[in-house]
């Protein structure tokens, strides 16, 4: 498995990461060396092995559907880059 420039650009787009054009080759090289490393897995027979998502095979804990949080909007928005009247501001989305 080897990624070329356009595939690296596509992955960066999916991850919403701006990558400088000058850096794409070096990302491509390092991603390919990482993928070569992880491809060692493919030689191992895993037929019938149940995938392990949680080390203790725990399941999600449920709680009663009750309000448990207090409103902290001001405190939480104090660290936001741009807000107005309790809303987060982003560039215009709908023309």
């Amino acid at each position: 498995m080897s990624l070329d420039r356009s595939e690296v650009e596509q992955i960066a787009h999916l991850a919403r990461l701006q990558i400088d054009a000058a850096d794409i080759d070096s990302y491509s090289d390092s991603l390919n060396s990482i993928l070569n490393l992880v491809d060692q897995m493919q030689a191992t027979n895993t037929d019938g092995v149940e995938p392990l998502a949680h080390p203790l095979d725990a399941v999600q804990r449920l709680r009663a559907d009750e309000v448990s949080e207090v409103n902290q909007r001001e405190a939480l928005q104090a660290v936001a880059p741009a807000t107005e009247e309790g809303l987060f501001l982003v560039p215009k989305v709908i023309e």
Partner: peptide
């Protein structure tokens, strides 16, 4: 950080999930 985000994005992208993520979870159990 960008490298790892891209490796993870690739491993989870359509068509590669079984070959990478699922395989790795099976090896995790082994």
């Amino acid at each position: 950080v960008k490298r790892r985000i891209m490796v993870g994005t690739y491993a989870l992208s359509a068509g590669y999930y079984d070959a990478y993520y699922n395989k790795a979870q099976q090896i995790r159990r082994m």
